[in-house]
Design a protein around this nucleic acid. Structure first.
Ligand SMILES: [Mn+2]
Ligand SMILES: [Mn+2]
Ligand SMILES: [Mn+2]
Ligand SMILES: [Mn+2]
Lengths: 246, 246
DNA sequence: AATCAAGTTTAGCCTCAACTAAAAATGTTT
DNA sequence: AAACATTTTTAGTTGAGGCTAAACTTGATT
């Protein structure tokens, strides 16, 4: 006889797990993103979660307990929380959805890169696995979204950007290639675009003094331009001659 | 001085109206559909609504009062409810979303016509007006969805199918063109497809006796086939020589 | 060791959209 | 006119996911 866990509830997903609510999915994604930002070290505090999701700290604590009870995260009271193995798997599934949708909106529908994030933020919760697959086929299985973020495989693996650093820390007098750009703020994206800063762009850093809070750079577009450290914090670059230049 | 109702809340939609919840949108759509089914006459009962949405009657009554309080419907207790002018406008907007999404899923992504409905049922609540427009552009502004249902214009107008009748009432010995097929039940759609019954199909009715509960018909596909009255109830046809045959 | 600020959790409340069970209205049949 | 079955509404509950205000931990500072 076979395990018939599938027959237990009529509303189980295609893989036997109950579908997660949009709120749960957003929390998982946020935990995953915050841990990544911190360089994969340590746990995520409820405070950081609350800030990230623009929610009261108490709400984050509530959800932390819920995630723990669902086996999606480990919660040490007053310390923080960390995704469980299945929690990370689910988080990556949401991230995958999000990035495939962003790419699809940009490539197939021509939606500008500063608008795809907000739309994907909602679509990610309603996309079936089958349509996800169809989107991927249509797109030719890209590995990065319009902001340069890697699209996790269905198994949850994706290339780490090893040698990348924040644009704010790029030393002057050298060329850098833009790897990835933070996608949450549309206004910043529109500004970066006007400066010619997008994934793949080649930048020459003319000047970058921390005290000035400003980076002087040259891209293909126009002549020298100036960018504040705040928006630069969302831009990751790598040294031009790190490996692949064909 | 001008009405500054817009400044009242930060979370108003692009047109000054607050966004409707998925539940409200589904109720509006159901009311609209039920009234259409009845031939545009009379009001919709809470019972019919409850059946249609698979919800307890009390839930439908609750929502009826809510819709009335929002000015989207008129509710006469113990009698039924009817969409207001703005309610109908909003209902048509949801229907437009739904049918554009269905068409997009079928045409652009190649999702089969028996699966597009369920997916669209969820997407319709998260689609922005801008992306709706981009989908329409990509599709070349079709007027019907994959099941033959007309796509309302942004203004809420669409062609009425005047001379159409239910396949169950098609008289034997004549040719009919399939106009539209009910899209809710995937299994029925798959069966109809195997019979060659889809919008635009030309059918010859060989025999149709009510007592038998069965229709004998011929389509382009295979030779004579038989269809029960139950699935036939979801198929609308028109006489072949009613106007346009090029 | 005691105090204090910052961060976290608890307690209690709210809205939405569902539910069940009981009460009320309606329309039909005697 | 009265009784009855059906439909609809009311009343009270539930669960998810927010909120505020108060209480509690924690780690740093006196
Ligand atoms: Mn989201
Ligand atoms: Mn992105
Ligand atoms: Mn829906
Ligand atoms: Mn349809």
């Amino acid at each position: 006889m076979t395990k018939d866990a599938e027959a237990a509830s009529p509303s189980l997903g295609p893989l036997g797990r109950a579908p997660l609510s949009p709120a749960v999915e957003d929390y998982l994604k946020a935990i995953y993103a915050l841990r990544s930002e911190q360089g994969a070290e340590g746990v995520v505090t409820t405070q950081a979660l609350a800030d990230s999701l623009r929610v009261a700290p108490a709400s984050a604590t509530n959800m932390a307990k819920k995630l723990a009870s669902m086996g999606l995260a480990h919660h040490t009271p007053y310390r923080g929380l960390e995704l469980s193995e299945t929690g990370e798997k689910m988080a990556l599934e949401v991230v995958r959805h999000h990035r495939i949708i962003e790419t699809f909106l940009a490539e197939v529908l021509g939606l500008s890169w500063d608008k795809v994030h907000d739309e994907a933020e909602r679509w990610e919760h309603v996309l079936s696995e089958e349509v996800e697959q169809l989107m991927m086929d249509k797109l030719g299985h890209p590995t990065r979204d319009p902001h340069g973020a890697p699209i996790p495989s269905r198994e949850g693996t994706f290339p780490r950007d090893e040698g990348s650093l924040c644009l704010c820390e790029a030393k002057a007098g050298a060329y850098f290639i833009v790897v990835q750009v933070a996608d949450e703020d549309g206004a910043t994206l529109r500004h970066l675009e006007s400066l010619g800063v997008r994934p793949g762009s080649r930048l020459f850093i003319e000047r970058n003094e921390k005290v000035e809070g400003v980076i002087h750079l040259k891209s293909g577009v126009g002549d020298g331009r100036v960018l504040g450290h705040a928006p630069a914090r969302g831009v990751w670059v790598r040294h031009e001659d790190h490996s692949n230049t064909p």
